[in-house]
């Protein structure tokens, strides 16, 4: 660590490239915290969007026309408006309407900026996940579903144990794309001051006037994260591969 820091200090002194986060203890601390916040944000958004997709795709197959229309409206809304506008809307409009509590002299909202980022980005990606899962569900043969009902499965049981597991495998490539997209879109959380990497980088370059350096760091950071996600997804895909199927 010492050597590493010295190298970047040296680099700054000799060439002017200021990777301040690698030799300044305070900035390094900021950077590390941003890494954790970003990872937590991404994981929360991924999980929430998958749950939304799972439930949404289920509800799309509902008997009730009202339920189906609500889902269709939800998808249209989130697909056809900018995610940045969505996140601002959630935080500033819905955030104002939700209750807050007295935190010793000032009002603290129950759902903070991190929470709103997860909710809005989760719904945003969830709209796409719903569509993706639905396309997977359509690929599950009607006869397989029928076999489940003949065995006494309810529609929900058959969705959980038969339809979804099969649909999920079919739509993994499309899901992969959308989750990578979601990962990248989490940078929009800087708009509502979630201290994730984009926001923190912005603060660091404001304090240190090292925009190009921090940009480079940002690129490498997100390339690394996407690589990890893609690797994880392909591992998952392989572990779910069914012998003798597809």
């Amino acid at each position: 660590m010492e050597l590493f820091g010295d190298y970047f200090k040296q680099l700054y002194d000799t060439s002017g490239w200021n990777f301040v986060i690698f030799y300044d203890q305070v900035e390094w601390q900021r950077f590390v915290e941003a890494i954790w916040t970003t990872i937590k944000l991404i994981i929360a958004c991924l999980i929430f969007s998958l749950i939304v997709g799972f439930v949404g795709a289920w509800a799309q197959g509902a008997q009730s026309k009202i339920v189906r229309n609500v889902i269709a409206g939800y998808i249209q809304f989130f697909r056809n408006t900018p995610p940045f506008v969505q996140i601002l809307f959630f935080y500033f409009v819905l955030g104002n309407l939700t209750p807050s509590y007295d935190a010793g002299g000032y009002q603290e909202a129950y759902i903070g900026s991190f929470g709103w980022a997860v909710i809005s980005l989760g719904f945003f990606a969830g709209a796409f996940n719903t569509e993706i899962f639905r396309s997977g569900i359509e690929a599950v043969p009607e006869s397989t579903v029928e076999a489940a009902s003949a065995l006494g499965y309810t529609r929900l049981q058959s969705y959980i144990h038969v339809v979804f597991p099969l649909a999920f495998r079919v739509c993994l490539p499309a899901l992969n794309n959308n989750l990578v997209n979601l990962l990248k879109t989490t940078t929009l959380a800087y708009g509502i001051a979630v201290p994730e990497m984009m926001y923190t980088a912005n603060q660091i370059w404001s304090d240190n006037v090292n925009v190009p350096e921090m940009m480079i760091v940002l690129f490498f950071f997100y390339v690394g994260l996407v690589a990890i996600l893609v690797y994880g997804m392909s591992r998952w895909e392989r572990s779910m591969k069914i012998p003798g199927y597809g």
Partner: peptide, 11 residues
Amino acid sequence: MVFQQYNLFPH
């Protein structure tokens, strides 16, 4: 019930 195409759960 048993079907012509077996309709087992492939996973």
